[in-house]
């Protein structure tokens, strides 16, 4: 090893020494960050759940999506719409995959009608939905929804899982590590974790907390006061078909309907991850081959 190379080695080492020294110094003078991490207003950390569709290999569980749809149909449809999902989507691969005939029957028996179209006399009409129509909710527009719900707006649920997340409150010195773990494990289920926590998060308000009129105490909701009444009931959960072999509980209902809504907000997840692995495999092999080619070419000269 020549003197120049040694000095170069040292130069890289020095860079790392600097980085570590600076990080150490910062750790000593930044005690506020740790306090901040624990000081979240909700007071309840939202726990991560096991999802069949979680991580970089996870896929939807068809049976769970079917159960989830059942919960959605019996509970959520009372107030919410799912306008970006069409009935036919329920029959498509990667989703609940109900039989076509069942979809037709479902659409025809949907409690809400499609409005805004005209008959051949030019008069506005309401009609029953077909398989190609949106899974509309009870209200024709937001104004009507608010009027019926005492001012609160039940949001459309098509994107609710994508539109929610869990705030990270890790202090600065460990934040990067949590990020790294999430990237490496392919964690994208923060929205589902939040929704599950919300659906199972109704509790009696702790002593000293006054809950507003028409509001409900919920540990997951920001500010803890939520206008949505508890949708799932502990003593009367949505019962599943006996052949499903799954015991109906509030938690099971919440888990299943969250999975269904996760599918509604990301219906191409199964295809995406499957194709993803093919692409990764292709890229990995090509990178290795290109590296070997490169090595062969560069072996002609000293470099």
């Amino acid at each position: 090893m020549g003197p120049m190379q040694r000095s170069m080695k040292r130069s890289w080492l020095n860079g790392w020494v600097v980085a570590i020294a600076v990080a150490g110094a910062m750790a000593a003078v930044l005690p506020f960050s740790a306090a901040n991490a624990a000081g979240d207003s909700a007071g309840h950390a939202i726990e991560r759940q096991e999802w069949s569709f979680g991580g970089f290999t996870g896929q939807y569980d068809q049976a769970q999506l079917q159960r989830g749809f059942q919960v959605y149909q019996q509970v959520c449809t009372a107030c919410h719409g799912l306008k970006r999902v069409r009935f036919r989507n329920l029959a498509e691969p990667g989703g609940p995959m109900f039989p076509e005939a069942a979809i037709k029957a479902l659409a025809a028996s949907w409690p809400y009608q499609i409005s805004g179209e005209l008959d051949d006399q030019g008069n506005p009409i309401d009609r029953l939905p077909g398989p190609a129509d949106q899974m509309v909710g009870p209200y024709k527009n937001d104004v009507q929804a608010r009027a019926a719900q005492g001012g609160a707006l039940p949001p459309d649920l098509s994107l609710i899982v994508k539109a929610r997340t869990i705030e990270t409150h890790a202090p600065w010195y460990s934040h990067w590590f949590h990020m790294l773990v999430d990237v490496v494990t392919g964690y994208q289920e923060a929205g589902a974790d939040y929704l599950y926590a919300l659906l199972t998060g109704y509790h009696d308000a702790p002593a000293g907390v006054t809950v507003g009129d028409g509001m409900y105490y919920n540990t997951a909701f920001h500010g803890n006061q939520l206008a949505m009444p508890p949708p799932l009931i502990k003593d009367a959960p949505v019962e599943y078909q006996p052949e499903a072999g799954v015991k109906a509980t509030l938690e099971q209902n919440a888990r299943d309907v969250t999975a269904f809504l996760a599918w509604a907000s990301d219906p191409t997840l199964d295809t995406r991850k499957r194709l993803g692995w093919q692409v990764m495999l292709y890229l990995l092999i090509t990178t290795v081959l290109l590296y070997l080619v490169k090595r062969k070419i560069w072996s002609r000269i000293e470099h």
Binding site: F56, D182, G186, Q188, V279, L283, T287, Y291
Partner: peptide, 30 residues
């Protein structure tokens, strides 16, 4: 060119990890 090709494909591995497995990681839920 041969070295750039290696760098680019290695970078594509990183790119596709996000595009296929973490498409929303770098965005905002809002």
């Amino acid at each position: 060119t041969s070295k750039d090709a290696v760098g680019m494909f290695a970078f594509l591995l990183f790119f596709c990890w996000f595009a296929f497995f973490l498409p929303d990681y770098l965005g905002h839920a809002d």
